[in-house]
Design a protein around this nucleic acid. Sequence first.
DNA 1: GCAACAAACGAACGTTCGTTATATTATGGC
DNA 2: GCCATAATATAACGAACGTTCGTTTGTTGC
Lengths: 206, 206
Amino acid sequence: MNKGADTRDRILREAEILAGTVGLDGLTIGVLATALDLSKSGLFAHFGSREGLQLAVLQRAADRFDRDVLFPALRAKSGEPRLRALVDHWLAWERTRGAHGGDLLAAAAFEMDDRPGVVRDYLVRVQQRWLGTLATACVIAAEAAHFRADVEPGSWVREAHGIVLAHRVARRLLGDAKADERAATAVEALFARARTSLKPRKRRAA
Amino acid sequence: MNKGADTRDRILREAEILAGTVGLDGLTIGVLATALDLSKSGLFAHFGSREGLQLAVLQRAADRFDRDVLFPALRAKSGEPRLRALVDHWLAWERTRGAHGGDLLAAAAFEMDDRPGVVRDYLVRVQQRWLGTLATACVIAAEAAHFRADVEPGSWVREAHGIVLAHRVARRLLGDAKADERAATAVEALFARARTSLKPRKRRAA
DNA sequence: GCAACAAACGAACGTTCGTTATATTATGGC
DNA sequence: GCCATAATATAACGAACGTTCGTTTGTTGC
């Protein structure tokens, strides 16, 4: 790898961690430079603008998300197992913090809500792609008769999204010790509700 | 009302709107002052510090939340109706934007995740109080036999929280036109699942 | 070992940040 | 109407912001 591309990577790695705690918008060239023992101008040259840096950070986070969440889960058997793997890896990703700043993407989703620009646009595309992936996996699970036919993929995915978001708040803001456990059972219930054969007990299919 | 308290209120009203778009941490004394035709120092004097301003904004938002969400819902009949009113008002509050900056509290919950300080501490208290209120309402609904006895209040509230958060992302970031509708049916399903008598159809109680 | 280029630097730009003195104006009790 | 005090303004502070500049240091191919 080039020397340039190498330090660019070092920068982005640190930037992602930093942005994980101060937010994408709180990310500042000066403190990032000092944290890396670089000059502001030297760092700046890699991205051309602050917006370019933010975009690159987001891009890196999205790439890492694909690598750590999407791709591994795709190795699971199509249908419910794959969908389950996707959601499980998603939760695990959301859980990781410190080492690589937790779910920067989810935080940015709340941060960039109302701030138009290329960064927001990119974020929207990433989120939509991910939720779309989940939705099609859900459709496939229905086609494979793992899920009931009347399961509405959009709503199902939204529920999964809700579990992940609520888990984050419970864990990182409120410090709920049972957050992980609660999220896991919520996911389990979400799947159980959608299944054709109601493995758990005490219910009857339509 | 004092002249001072009056402008202080004007300041906070504007500040809440502004913070709704740029975030609590993006809220800046300079732009807030110019937006209100005040001098920076004049505005500053009202709060003593930037942190004081942030805290006051959060406090105002929490008060408004009580006034617009909590108190009106408390007029509903105890048990499921009241819990339903709480959640419905919550969603409606989350939906309001522009006029008063949407759910500043939820945004702050993601923003302040990892930033210790009085602001974060206050935010935690507010959130915990609200979720606690919901949980006790849920317990009461169970005691009144509106809800099944095996409904775990903490988990139930977490699910409601997830619906609200996912709704916000869908609506404000992704611009989903069906967001409101989806959230409403999700809430309906959440209640239906917890009810003792399964009004909808096609299910049997435990 | 020398030219060509990439990468990083230090210094400065003009703004804006939060904050502090100090001054001016408005308000309210008598 | 006077006077204490509350409310706001002016002016300035040092620090940090993103950005630009010209220069210096490293790397690479010949």
